[in-house]
Every structure is written in C-alpha cells, then in structure tokens.
C-alpha cells in the first residue's frame, strides 16, 4: 500500500516541479564548502566554532559570490552524516568538512571515491594516507592549562569543579591540561569532576554544577554544548567563576566568565583553501595551538581580573608558546 501511497505523492510533486525545473545553479564559480556537524550551528561550542570560522572566512573573501557555504547540522547519526558527506561530494563541492571525530571511517571510505574533492575532518590527526584528506585538531590541553593557572589564582575555597558529558576527545585533553595548570600553581587545590553521560541533558549538567558549588567549589569549568546549563547554575548562585572552552562564552554570563579558550579555525580554513587553489588537496594535518593562533585565550573584558592572575595567565601562554611548559594531553 505504501508504494502506491508514495507514488501518488511522487507523481504530484513531480508534476508540480516539472515546469519550474530543478534547483538553480549559481552562474559564477565561487569556492564551495559544505560542512557536516554533529550539533547545532548555534551550540556556543564545538560546531559553532567551525561555523563561525567559515562565516568569517566568507566575509573576508568577499561574501557569497566568493565562498558558498552549505551545512548539515544535528548529524549525530554517523550513517546520515556519511550520506550527507557523500551527497555534498557528488554535488561538486570543492571541499567537504566532516566536523566530528566519529566521521573518520566514513571520510576514509568516501574520499577514495571522490579524488578531486577535498575532505577535511576533525578533530583528529589521521589523514589515512590519502592525498585529498586534511585532518585538523585542537591542542585543547594548552588552553586548559592556561585556564587552570588562572583558576588556581582565583579560587579562594581551593575547590574547583569540572562538568562534562563524557570523558572523551578534546573534553578529556582540555580537562587534563586544566588539572596540570591548577597543580602548577598549587598542588593542594582539589579538582573534582563529574560526567553526566549525556551530551544533551542540560538539567543534569546544571545540577552537577550546583552539586560542585554545594561541595565548596567557587570556580567551575567544563566542555561541550551542555555546559550552558552549568553556566546557568553558576549564574544563579553568583560569585562562582566560570572558564569556557571551544568558544568564547563570555556573553552567557558576562559577570562570571573569566576567560575562554576559543578554537579559531579561520587560519586552518584559509590555509586549506589556498592549498587547494594551488592544487594540493590534502595529506596534511593541522593542530590548532596557542603558537599558531588556532587557539586563543579570550579574556572577558567585562570581568575585573586581578593583575597578578592576568600576569600568571600571560606567562603560561608565553611558556607554552616557547615550549618551556610541557603538558601531557
């Protein structure tokens, strides 16, 4: 029955569509980038960091006529993401960004079928030995370290709380760096962690933050899109400071956010676009770091950071940049 049901719709739509023709194709030939990402473009975290970078590069290059962007968000399901990646590639996009570590196997498989398309994927460092795959990642432990130093300088209760969904990827490395940063200032400070097991359960994340606060924490940090719940909790309790990662989270609680480690992919993107115009379609890995501008520590201008803390933060940044400070991810 369903076959017939569907064919009626198919027929109706086909008839409607026929006189108008298919989707229109732009006349000029802009550089076309498609991006597939697991969460929303507006998550104030991982996905938005890349999407904002794309928009920034687009603006710099001269808008839609120079750089065309297509996106698919909310692609938590890997097979759907794989279908999207394949489809964008077959539509002739110059570059397809698979913005999620979990898409790796799919990229490896699809990239072989579209040797003229650039595939960029992250966060990882593996290009599978393919000439048309770029890999990008962020050394999240570096900004974590700086945030940790700042946090250690600011905590009075000597208890710092960390919230996150699950202990993986850059959440893991960020927090590892953070703990090392804290310990470098005062090994006596306790860093306690909670993992809620869900990327989307904001309410539980908020409660985790409240639990940290009840246990005496006066500084909080965390990663992933669900941390906004924690920020809300910090805000409600007041006087609890927040350190962000992945994206500049100052706007969420201007009075509480001290600093954020921001992923800035614009450099990576421009590099890849430049390379592709020179005919190099991949085979390289990029690691966003404090040294190459891929990572930035964004101090919240609205927060009155004590001078000595700021100095310690800047010193940590310099130390990492010069290689004097070594951090294990």
């Amino acid at each position: 029955m369903s076959i017939r049901r569907f064919s009626i719709v198919a027929l109706a739509v086909a008839l409607l569509a026929a006189p108008l023709g298919g989707p229109t194709v732009a006349a000029a030939a802009p550089f076309r980038i498609a991006i597939v990402m697991p969460s929303a473009t507006t998550d104030m975290a991982f996905s938005q960091s890349m999407f904002s970078a794309l928009k920034a590069v687009q603006k710099e290059m001269g808008g839609e006529t120079a750089l065309q962007i297509a996106y698919s968000e909310g692609m938590f399901k890997v097979p759907d993401a794989a279908a999207a990646i394949r489809d964008y590639a077959s539509q002739g996009f110059n570059m397809v960004i698979a913005h999620g570590s979990q898409y790796g196997s799919s990229v490896e498989e699809i990239a072989k079928d579209f040797p003229k398309t650039i595939f960029a994927w992250g966060t990882d460092v593996n290009t599978f030995g393919l000439p048309n795959v770029y890999a990008y990642t962020a050394a999240a432990e570096q900004g974590g370290y700086v945030n940790g130093v700042l946090a250690a300088k600011l905590t009075k209760s000597k208890v710092i709380g960390v919230t996150g969904p699950v202990e993986i990827g850059d959440a893991k490395t960020y927090i590892s760096g953070f703990a090392q940063g804290v310990a470098s200032v005062d090994p006596g400070i306790r860093v306690s962690k909670t993992w809620t097991g869900s990327f989307s359960n904001v309410a539980l994340m908020a409660e985790a933050a409240k639990t940290h606060i009840a246990a005496g924490a006066d500084v909080l940090t965390g990663s992933s899109q669900a941390v906004v719940g924690s920020i809300g909790a910090a805000k409600e309790k007041g006087k609890v400071l927040w350190f962000g990662t992945q994206y500049d989270q100052s706007s969420l609680a201007p009075e509480l956010v001290v600093a954020s480690q921001q992923y800035d992919w614009t450099g990576v993107l421009k590099e890849m676009i430049k390379n592709s115009k020179a005919g190099k379609l991949g085979g390289e890995k990029y690691v966003a770091q404090l040294t190459n501008g891929g990572l930035k520590i964004v101090y919240n201008p609205g927060f009155a950071l004590p001078k000595d803390a700021r100095a310690a933060g800047d010193k940590a940044i310099k130390g990492i940049q010069s290689g004097a400070i070594k951090i294990t991810p």
Partner: peptide, 17 residues
C-alpha cells in the same frame, strides 16, 4: 517548497546511492 520537495523525491529516486 517546490524545489524542496523535488529534491526530496530526487533524493530517493534520482540516484542509485
């Protein structure tokens, strides 16, 4: 909407993949 639904049909019947 027309090109949207046309794409929907084409997405299923328009290609082997």
């Amino acid at each position: 909407p027309v090109s949207a639904y046309a794409a929907m049909i084409q997405g299923v019947f328009g290609s082997v993949s």
